[in-house]
């Protein structure tokens, strides 16, 4: 029996959907994008099915465009299937209130991701637009811009400390303290917290989760305004910021644009 990976988008998937899929020869396996392991199932899968719109952060969300990007890039022969309580005229869409209308032949007519041209409209916040703003170089929604400002200060302080061997008390007084790292960090945290839960049901959830874990390692240092010398001296802070930057670059490259935003410089 072929398998289809179900992303329920934080909503209760009807038992009838599982039973229907079984009846037409497909086993539905629920996956949780924030947890590891689901990508291992992809090579053997017939497709990924999204229950749309997803629910998260107090709103309905349309994650289809991000999944389309991911599959077209990594697994172009898989199908991106969509199911909802809406009436949508689209070759890969299953209407939950008309399951009986979709026979085994329907599944064979569905399109693989590399063929799909335009996705249908689903009511919900378009997460691909949200992600663009996440990476935008300016504006209230830009998460990357704030992080880059923090990294710039840390990078300069590290260079002074390690290469120029300037005493940290001087670096702190002249560079780190005036930069008000604690405030910048709070600003970053504030924007991050508003954003990253939105992507819980998308293929980039795992990467965002890794970034969230990375931030925990330096939270204390940042909130203390960078007073402590050791985490900077041993390179830990800059390393974490570099790791975060790398993860973010990968996300932007894969899901937003080919040309990376200037804020990484």
């Amino acid at each position: 029996m072929k398998i289809v990976l179900l992303v329920d988008g934080g909503r209760p998937a009807p038992q009838a959907l599982t039973a229907y899929c079984e009846a037409v020869g497909f086993r539905l396996i629920k996956i949780t994008p924030t947890e590891g392991g689901w990508q291992k199932l992809l090579p053997e899968a017939f497709g990924v099915m999204l229950l749309l719109p997803a629910w998260g952060s107090g709103a309905y969300l349309d994650s289809s465009c991000l999944w389309q990007h991911f599959l077209a890039d990594q697994y172009p022969h898989l199908r991106l299937l969509m199911t909802s309580y809406e009436q949508v005229d689209y070759v890969n869409h299953l209407d939950l209130l008309r399951l009986a209308d979709y026979d085994a032949a329907w599944w064979q007519q569905t399109q693989e991701t590399h063929i799909t041209e335009e996705l249908p409209y689903f009511t919900g916040i378009d997460l691909s637009e949200k992600l663009k703003r996440f990476f935008a170089g300016h504006g209230d929604d830009s998460v990357v811009a704030v992080l880059s400002r923090i990294r710039l200060v840390v990078q300069m302080a590290s260079r002074e400390l390690q290469k120029m061997q300037t005493p940290y008390s001087e670096i702190y007084a002249d560079l780190v303290k005036p930069a008000q790292l604690a405030n910048k960090w709070r600003e970053w945290r504030n924007r991050w917290i508003n954003y990253y839960p939105l992507f819980e049901h998308t293929p980039l959830a795992g990467k965002l989760e890794q970034i969230a874990l990375l931030t925990e390692g330096m939270e204390h240092w940042m909130l203390a305004g960078g007073k402590e010398q050791e985490p900077l001296a041993n390179g830990m802070i800059l390393q974490v910021l570099n790791d975060m930057r790398e993860q973010l670059q990968q996300i932007e490259k894969q899901y937003v644009v080919q040309k990376l935003s200037h804020t990484y410089r």
Partner: peptide
């Protein structure tokens, strides 16, 4: 109204295939 509709169908969908 849209969210109310979706939430209502979340609940009623649990009784599918009963239409």
């Amino acid at each position: 109204i849209f969210e109310f509709k979706e939430d209502l169908f979340n609940c009623l969908g649990q009784y599918l295939p009963q239409m």
